[in-house]
Design a protein around this nucleic acid. Structure first.
Lengths: 176, 176
DNA sequence: ACCCACATGTAAGACGTTACATGATTCC
DNA sequence: GGAATCATGTAACGTCTTACATGTGGGT
């Protein structure tokens, strides 16, 4: 099966977050926090918005649009598509956690907790795996000496996972 | 100007790290730590190795190769290319820090320190930027309530940067 | 008038994935 | 002998980047 496209859902999420947006404004959004996790250039965005109109996921808002700009708003169908995508379980690969989290506005949305718990599971498994690798590869200090860069990035990854797991747990606690 | 290709340098680095590798072994490498930062499938690797032979960056090692597998070794020219790439300054975008670090074997290689200092600079600037953003967007608690997902990923990014800066500083200290 | 930011669009090419193919060796 | 893994290669396709192109509106 072909891999699921991500871009249309991001556009959907961005539009949904802000109620209405122009293509240009969407391209600007990638300079903000969303840009930490994804990027798209205007040459992708405009054709994608066209396709989404064809699919009935968004529509142009006649009220606010003028000769210069077209504002897009999300349709009910688009909302369903976004919701369905957000609710698909997270996978170890393609790491969509932050991206999806960005599109959950309400602290008490059940999706919030669900996402964090899923990610926690993935990160914990990955963390164990990295610890195994470190044990396997770098038990002797001579192994460290001969591949110091490799040793460092493995150590860094372990720290990163550990910190992130801690953060996820803190947030989960916060949510209760 | 066209963006610099990364794949050939990764293959160069992997071959250099292990002295000699087959295309198949390279593809397996992406299941290990290097896979945290980059991936390539065999359908990319084999043609790339051919191109690199044409460019004189690698050569097949007749000694160890047989009917089944071809082992590749790095040439002097390849070593120069790898070294040049490793020494190009890091950029905020395309984040090649971990990748490059992975290819530095010796703790006392001056490149080690250089990479970490460069990355430290980039991360510090980014950290400041994120703090600014948080101040700008989430000064009032009502702003947090209405965009909680956004708030969380920004907070998470700040934590991540902070932890990574700390880790980089620790490593730098270690190197002295 | 000119420049710049705003705003949108298309086309060519690079890069990467999935799928299609083939053959050798090892393990059961 | 059949399945799984090793090992290499090519083709079709989708995605994303870079570059080319055009027009509007506001400021000086």
């Amino acid at each position: 099966m072909p891999k699921k496209r991500v871009l249309p859902y991001i556009l959907l999420g961005l539009i949904n977050n802000q109620a209405k947006l122009t293509g240009y404004q969407i391209s600007q959004e990638f300079n903000n926090e969303i840009g930490e996790f994804w990027h798209a250039s205007h040459s992708q965005i405009y054709p994608e918005l066209q396709r989404m109109i064809d699919d009935g996921w968004v529509m142009s808002d006649e009220e606010s649009s003028d000769s210069k700009s077209t504002y897009y708003v999300i349709t009910d169908k688009g909302n369903d598509a976004l919701s369905e995508w957000l609710n698909e379980p997270l996978s170890e690969k393609d790491d969509l956690f932050s991206l999806k989290l960005y599109f959950v506005k309400d602290k008490h949305d059940s999706l919030m907790k669900k996402l964090i718990q899923q990610q926690l599971k993935i990160n914990s498994a990955h963390y164990s795996h990295l610890l195994e690798r470190k044990k396997l590869l770098f038990s002797k200090s001579s192994d460290i000496e001969s591949s110091y860069g490799h040793y460092l990035i493995l150590s860094s990854a372990i720290e990163r996972e550990s910190n992130h797991i801690k953060w996820l747990n803190d947030v989960l606690e916060e949510l209760k």
